[in-house]
Structure formats: structure tokens, C-alpha cells
Simulated scan of single mutants.
Amino acid sequence: MQAAALLNLLQFASPALPIGAYSYSQGLEAALESGKVHNADTARAWILRHLHEVVAQWEAPVCWRLMQAWSRRDWSAASEWSERFIASRDSAEFRAETIQMGYSLTKLVAELNIVDADMLAQLQREPEVALPTAFACAVAALNIPHDAALLAMLFAWAENQVLVCVKSVPLGQVAGQRILLSLRADIEAAARHAQTVGDDDMCNWAPGLSLLSMLHEVQYSRLYRS
């Protein structure tokens, strides 16, 4: 990868990106409240199952297709996959999460002036912009290789899950980094799967996670927005 593309990727995959990713746990806080996650072993098991059964089966393949659509400037495909992703958010919190971060990233790329007029017009035509849609737009605008961008997206997701556990289980910083290091082979496998899975084999079926998200909406005390 060229240095410019790598630096662009590091910036747009950074947890310091001001889109609010740190404020969401994606159902993990409800799993902590219920006791399903309570130590390093259960935290790692939770992240692995979420990665392989949800993210690798749906979110990452959708992101992969969106990156391809944006790079080809296939606006019809970009809109279709964005609409499908938003429709797949089966709780109020999951839907609000992707819309809020998608809006924030859209605003950021516009203010940084990294997208051309056609790309910006396409983003603005969308009634609501999902986070993977805005991320794919930035990847295309900055000429970031898709395989590297997908790995960065998956790593950023895993890192955020680990940070939730560090703060809320709680785990020590070293324990959190140990979990993150142990996930590397699984992240690579998830990326490979996302690039090869067929449209008819993609799935976001995770009723237990959906129920936990709905329970989180009425959880009495919480730190995170999902």
C-alpha cells in the first residue's frame, strides 16, 4: 500500500475519528448487565461469536459491496446496499447507531473536502446514510485498497468491543490488549469470508443479540447508547 493510502486509512479507522463510536457497545453492555459477560474468557467468547456470526456474515460483506459500488460509482448498487443495511437494524438502538455515525462521518468528509461533487451529491441524495455507506465513500474518495479498509473496519469494531470490556467488566488494559491480539487470525478469517460470501448466503440472524439490544433500551443504568 502506498504511504498516502495507509495514512488515510489510519486516520479514518482511528477511534479518535469524531463520529461517536466510543459511545456504543452494540448490545455488549446488556450482556454485561445480565452476567453473560463477566470476565476475560467470556468477553473474548462474546466478541468471537459476534464477529463470526453477525459481523462476518452481514456487516462486513455489506461494507465490501458498498466499497466496490462507490469505487465504480454505481450509485444504484450503493443505494440498494445502504438501504438493505439500514433495514437490517432490528432494534431502535442499532438503527440509531448507524444513522448517527453515518451522519457524522458524512458531515466530516464534506467538511474535510475529500469527496468530489458527484460523491457528495450521492450522499446527500440518500434519505439516511448508514455508517458503512459513509465509510465506503471515504475509502473510494481516498483510493484506499478495499482489502485493507475491510481489515481496518473489522479491527476498529473489535477494538471498540474490547474497550467496552476494559471499562465495564472491568478488565485491565493488558488483559484487553491480550484479547485484541488473540483475535487477529479471526479478524483475517472474517475479512476473507466477507469478500467471498455470496449474496444469498449473507445473514444477520442473531435473535439473542436483538433481544439484548431491546433490553438495553430500557436498562435502568447504562454508560453506552446501544
Rank of each mutant, 00 (worst) to 15 (best):
residue 24 Y to C: 01
residue 48 L to Q: 05
residue 119 M to V: 13
residue 126 E to Y: 04
residue 57 Q to K: 08
residue 89 R to H: 01
residue 31 A to Q: 06
residue 164 V to Q: 03
residue 142 L to S: 04
residue 84 R to Y: 06
residue 77 A to C: 11
residue 206 A to N: 07
residue 6 L to A: 15
residue 215 L to F: 14
residue 39 N to A: 09
residue 222 R to E: 00
residue 95 R to Q: 09
residue 162 V to S: 02
residue 145 P to F: 02
residue 8 N to E: 08
residue 5 A to Q: 04
residue 184 R to F: 11
residue 31 A to Y: 03
residue 178 R to T: 12
residue 102 G to R: 08
residue 193 H to S: 08
residue 22 Y to M: 09
residue 176 G to V: 09
residue 180 L to K: 06
residue 87 A to Y: 01
residue 175 A to C: 07
residue 185 A to C: 15
residue 167 K to L: 10
residue 199 D to I: 14
residue 14 S to E: 07
residue 34 S to I: 05
residue 148 A to C: 14
residue 135 F to G: 05
residue 194 A to C: 12
residue 116 D to M: 15
residue 208 G to W: 11
residue 64 W to S: 13
residue 77 A to D: 14
residue 209 L to E: 02
residue 84 R to I: 07
residue 132 P to Q: 09
residue 223 L to C: 09
residue 189 A to F: 12
residue 8 N to P: 03
residue 104 S to Q: 15
residue 113 N to S: 15
residue 100 Q to N: 12
residue 82 S to L: 08
residue 31 A to E: 01
residue 210 S to Q: 15
residue 76 S to K: 10
residue 120 L to M: 14
residue 21 A to S: 06
residue 207 P to G: 01
residue 60 A to M: 07
residue 74 D to A: 04
residue 144 I to R: 02
residue 161 Q to D: 03
residue 46 W to H: 09
residue 203 C to M: 10
residue 89 R to F: 06
residue 104 S to K: 11
residue 54 V to K: 03
residue 210 S to R: 14
residue 183 L to F: 06
residue 182 S to V: 00
residue 59 E to N: 12
residue 6 L to E: 08
residue 133 T to Y: 06
residue 182 S to N: 02
residue 35 G to N: 01
residue 52 H to W: 07
residue 2 Q to H: 09
residue 5 A to M: 00
residue 85 F to I: 15
residue 196 T to P: 10
residue 163 L to E: 10
residue 212 L to R: 11
residue 159 E to V: 12
residue 92 A to E: 12
residue 219 Q to W: 08
residue 25 S to F: 01
residue 172 G to T: 13
residue 5 A to K: 01
residue 30 A to V: 05
residue 216 H to S: 10
residue 144 I to C: 00
residue 83 E to M: 10
residue 74 D to L: 04
residue 22 Y to A: 15
residue 28 L to R: 12
residue 215 L to E: 10
residue 31 A to L: 02
residue 178 R to P: 00
residue 113 N to H: 14
residue 130 A to Y: 03
residue 201 D to P: 02
residue 140 A to Q: 02
residue 17 L to S: 05
residue 28 L to G: 02
residue 171 L to R: 09
residue 154 L to H: 07
residue 29 E to C: 06
residue 14 S to A: 10
residue 161 Q to F: 12
residue 182 S to W: 00
residue 185 A to Q: 13
residue 47 I to L: 12
residue 126 E to V: 02
residue 33 E to G: 09
